[in-house]
Design a protein around this nucleic acid. Sequence first.
DNA 1: AATGAATGAGGCTTCATTCAT
DNA 2: AATGAATGAAGCCTCATTCAT
Lengths: 210, 210, 210, 210
Amino acid sequence: MVSESPLRKRRKEARPSELTAAALGLFVEKGFAATRLEEVALRAGVSKGTLYLYFDSKEALFKAVIQEGIIPVVAEGEAIAASHAGSAFDLLERLLGNWWTRIGETDFAGIPKLMVAEARNFPEVAQFYYENVIRRGRALVGAALERGMASGEFRRMEIETCIEVVIAPVLMLLIWRFSMGSCQGKQVDPAQYLAIHMDLLRQGLQRSQV
Amino acid sequence: MVSESPLRKRRKEARPSELTAAALGLFVEKGFAATRLEEVALRAGVSKGTLYLYFDSKEALFKAVIQEGIIPVVAEGEAIAASHAGSAFDLLERLLGNWWTRIGETDFAGIPKLMVAEARNFPEVAQFYYENVIRRGRALVGAALERGMASGEFRRMEIETCIEVVIAPVLMLLIWRFSMGSCQGKQVDPAQYLAIHMDLLRQGLQRSQV
Amino acid sequence: MVSESPLRKRRKEARPSELTAAALGLFVEKGFAATRLEEVALRAGVSKGTLYLYFDSKEALFKAVIQEGIIPVVAEGEAIAASHAGSAFDLLERLLGNWWTRIGETDFAGIPKLMVAEARNFPEVAQFYYENVIRRGRALVGAALERGMASGEFRRMEIETCIEVVIAPVLMLLIWRFSMGSCQGKQVDPAQYLAIHMDLLRQGLQRSQV
Amino acid sequence: MVSESPLRKRRKEARPSELTAAALGLFVEKGFAATRLEEVALRAGVSKGTLYLYFDSKEALFKAVIQEGIIPVVAEGEAIAASHAGSAFDLLERLLGNWWTRIGETDFAGIPKLMVAEARNFPEVAQFYYENVIRRGRALVGAALERGMASGEFRRMEIETCIEVVIAPVLMLLIWRFSMGSCQGKQVDPAQYLAIHMDLLRQGLQRSQV
DNA sequence: AATGAATGAGGCTTCATTCAT
DNA sequence: AATGAATGAAGCCTCATTCAT
């Protein structure tokens, strides 16, 4: 009957995302099957049983991890595209740059690697991710490319495939970081990596000057 | 003492690669932890126990899968580079093209996805793969880029990072195929994908014509 | 945070020795390798998995069985020796008698047979047992013999070997019970066996009356 | 049709005992369950399959090991007893001494330890061993004791139990050697051990001189 | 809401046994 | 007679899940 302290309330409401955060870290590191719920619980500072108060199963936890992960970023991208005034290439640069800073530097950075590793084990989750993240992300990039081609800023190319080639290096940057990244001596500098990618693209997409 | 029948002998010697082939398929599909050795045995047409006549453990099987997987292709690339006479871009195209046809269309195509998914669980294997495949692959691409920059065919850019950006789409193409690839309706056409990638690169790397 | 119910607490603390008790029985009966953990669990009234909440492995369970087994008895013997006032032979009789009643009639009676059967498979455990039980037991008997020889109650003999000859029948009595004992029709009566052993010893150790 | 070379023939006939010899060594060292037939084969210098040409199963091999082991020695003892002319104590000494030299210094020395360790797992084998070795061995010792008591050389004691006490140290000497024996620094000297045992017995059994 | 002891199905691994050569 | 590759039942151990407290 006594109203709970706000501190405790906040705690309670924050629980699920504390749990998914812990789970995300371990899923990315070890993969779904090799992650033990006991470790997740330990990392989240709760007991194993507590996980089941919030998630029905390990699989449900996985789904929650993915769902919680990433949607806002796409919406941001869509807002950027809607309000963009400058050149198509500037838009492309802003989209990839925003995606990088909003994902690449956060805890969610591991999700693409996780998704790649587990897609075949969780087709519905993969489908969900595809519909809600990838398809929309591609549409954004596709629109920028189309705008550039329409305005004569970019040369004409087959768009669908072009989208993928444009996105691939950015995705790969993330995936690498959470997989083979620890093998090489000096790490890639993301800023430089993106700069070179954009530099190649700028000239590569450009309509011939003749 | 008596020499064994050739049929049986061939069988015996072929066994290990039959087993690694079956294992590779399942590891790629489900990941290491989620693959049951019983399934591997079933797919290879042997009993569970037989696996242990050839590999000490599931982990040893994994290592064998990776080691058997891929080295010859790099050597081929090195031969191509050594004997190449034409332009730097042609070399680049031949290297990526050869890599694709020699990997992308074979059973080994899944190895990059597998390696990405499991690198953190098997750091030594990842290191081995890095030293023997990635480092040498990068060196090949790096040499082609350098040749082009030296001859004035390519503009000058920071090479190390450039290598990664050049390789990323080809890697991503493979990885995608064995992960999210099944989500989308129509599959990417690899030939077209590579063509567009090379097309963007050709113009993107080109020294400015002015 | 809440204190657990005493009933549950008592259970929890009693578990390990319930488990080692069950394990001891089966190890003695069948030997280490032939004992299945499922049987141990069954006998202890728990599930197979529960064993692993308390012991890391079958081998750890074995070690615990031995360690838990027997040490207090030696301490008792040492106390008896320290406070003994009567003749050396009386001390010897009390030591062997006490050892018998405190071991031979309890659940731990099987440990010597178990230790004999498994010593070579578990050298460290055997060493532990040797240091903590056998060496100290011998020292006790040795001290009694020495006292008797010093006082002229016993004749002089080589002590170290004498200790073994004195102890052997008592050990053998136990070992026999848990091995070939079931073959013969009428069982040996331990009391009579000890009586005869002591009777032979009394006269055998006695200094010649001349 | 061609008669086999005698060398080969001898080899073939010797096979079974080569196998049981190898098996005995390992059974004594590790116990029945922990001994792998592959090791037995390896030690005997044959292949695993060959074992099954001579023994139907691991258990059959065990039975053969025991049966082959020890019977002649008892017969020897019986011959000694039959032809013995001297004192009862001399007979006792000869029996135990003969038993020791004929067993204790041969490969069969490990059998008592093996039998003790496995008796409960192989009740029929234990029974066989009991009937053919133990019972007859006891009878021999019993007859010597009885002769001594009848002649007045020994004092009167309950014979059955006395037999066991007399035998126990000799048995224990063997068992110890193949179990805890490796724990202690300096090994017991069997000759001295037997000497002390006999010395204690001589005086212990003696009819009081008064 | 939270705990953590307990469960038991399921996977990896071993090894006695078989059988084609 | 001998081999050794192959089998598959069985045991150890893990861990997702449950539930009494």
